[in-house]
């Protein structure tokens, strides 16, 4: 059986095509201001990679904040459920799932079958989402890709006072003026973010293995700050954490096919 999952997020739209429990096609385009176009773009990419057509797919699951724009979807998949299934798919030992996307963050406690036990969400405030790190990278004048490696060079602990992206931008600028090393500032940024996300995770309970999904999982500096914050041995991150929700949506589509 072939199913597909499409995750239309605030920043990126991703499609995954799943054939008998294996990913055979993937597509990703930035969402921009035309969600429908982004959905079509990522879907076409994935079809091409899989070498199939729409008619070969039994069921399509749509998820993400722009799920209403996914007209090709047969079913709407709850994003929490999608994350739970995806974490279980990548790491069967997963019990706590953290998803940090551009505009939202979620923590899900899951059972051994990838079932949702409990969850908490942070939305509508950029301080608790990937947007925070992006804005801070701009203030620091480094690329988003550089942020993580920079942060890993530092072992300083500098607390950040501001809890709002807008105010934190000024704080970062003052740190630069005070000649604080960029690596130390970068670590302070990731630590601040990890402490907010960590508090959300503790509301569902921290149980290993901890899995991180979402685009911010690509940032090794954040993953390390998060690991320290949660005081765990390691955080499992799949190769392409950003595709988590799309994979989950494809799995749920298969369950319901």
């Amino acid at each position: 059986m072939i199913t597909a999952g499409i995750d239309c997020g605030a920043k990126n739209t991703r499609t995954v095509i799943l054939k008998e429990g294996e990913v055979v096609g993937k597509g990703m385009v930035s969402t921009g201001f035309d969600q429908e176009k982004a959905v079509k773009g990522s879907f076409d990419q994935a079809l091409k990679m899989a070498g199939i057509t729409r008619d070969d797919i039994e069921k399509i699951g749509g998820t993400g904040s722009g799920r209403n724009a996914i007209s090709v979807a047969d079913i709407e998949v709850n994003d929490i459920k999608a994350l739970a299934r995806a974490a279980n798919f990548f790491f069967p030992g997963a019990r706590t799932v953290v998803d940090v996307g551009a505009e939202e963050a979620r923590a899900v406690k899951i059972g051994d079958k990838g079932n949702v036990v409990n969850f908490a969400v942070n939305e509508k405030c950029a301080a608790g989402a990937g947007a925070f790190i992006e804005a801070m990278a701009r203030a620091l004048e480094v690329s988003l890709e550089e942020m993580g490696p920079l942060s890993l060079q530092s072992d300083k602990q500098i607390p950040m006072n501001a809890q709002c992206v807008i105010f934190a931008e000024s704080e970062v600028v003052s740190m630069i003026h005070a000649r604080t090393a960029k690596s130390d500032i970068s670590k302070a940024i990731h630590d601040a973010m990890a402490s907010r996300i960590g508090a959300m995770i503790r509301r569902v309970g921290v149980k290993e293995e901890v899995v991180m999904l979402g685009g911010v999982g690509h940032n090794p500096g954040f993953v390390e700050s998060m690991r320290r914050e949660l005081k765990v041995e390691k955080i499992c991150v799949p190769e392409e954490p950003g595709f988590g929700a799309a994979v989950g949506a494809a799995i749920v589509a298969a369950e319901q096919a």
Binding site: F33, K124, C125, A126, V165
Partner: peptide, 18 residues
């Protein structure tokens, strides 16, 4: 619609594009 200034900003950018 967004309260958060960061999100309101991207919302506004979308409105200008429209």
């Amino acid at each position: 619609a967004s309260t958060c200034v960061v999100y309101a900003k991207s919302e506004a950018t979308g409105l200008l594009r429209r």
